[in-house]
Amino acid sequence: MLSIKNLNKIYHTEEGDEVVALSDINLYVADKEFVCFIGPSGCGKTTLLRIIAGLEKPDSGTLTVNKEPITGPGPDRGMVFQEYSLFPWRTVLKNITFSLELKKIPKSEREKIAREFLELVGLLEFADSYPHELSGGMKQRVAIARAMVNDPDVLLMDEPFGAVDAQTRNRLQHELLNIWERKKKTVLFITHSVDEAVFLADKVVVFTARPGRVKEVINVDLPRPRERTSFEANAVREHLLASLGAEIQAAID
């Protein structure tokens, strides 16, 4: 459903130098697949996600969602950012209704839909709170609900749980999997955590250090719900760590 062919992205610095951010990326993501991107910092995985979101343009290559080429942001792709991105002047409920307002859906109906999604992320009682009244983990759950309410085919997530503490993070991972299983979306999820990738993904895409290339794609064929510490999970984790370790070393060198 998501197909990327021969994609390149080059940045031009002010001095006129060229920095290759992404080089010859080829990737196919099936419908309703949960895919994690992992790689050393600065390998271009965020850039790739932003290109898929339509927020940046590639220099060459083709990019399609459901065979439709990507030319800009669209309702078929939702995104959850690493930074807290809720509109601080809107209540939790009004944050979620934002995209429905743009679609001119009547008020009573859009609030009904928004409440459904708030319930999905377990924050119904915070409907009338403002974002500054929520914890970091709660903000990201609202951001997920806000992206989901638009009913996108693909959910793009750029290290959404990077800023929350470890325990909250585990809980958010569980919740995300619940939502994913109930709503059956394709998810592209950037992470720095091997544990997170092994727990969440059907498929882990490992990126090389800059210039970012796809180093390998690892299928995680573990039954769900997963045991974080099972023997099989550890085997995948070790494989990933070894693959990633070489790249992190390369990034440092």
């Binding site: 927020l55 942001p73 939702g78 995104m79 991105s85």
Partner: peptide, 26 residues
């Protein structure tokens, strides 16, 4: 920037919408 981009991925693309729905309240 993240608020503007959040708006864009939520379907708020036109300058007019971005100004009135995002930049002005911000």
């Amino acid at each position: 920037k993240v608020l503007v981009e959040s708006g864009m991925v939520l379907g708020c693309i036109k300058n007019r919408d971005l100004i009135f729905r995002i930049a002005l309240p911000a």
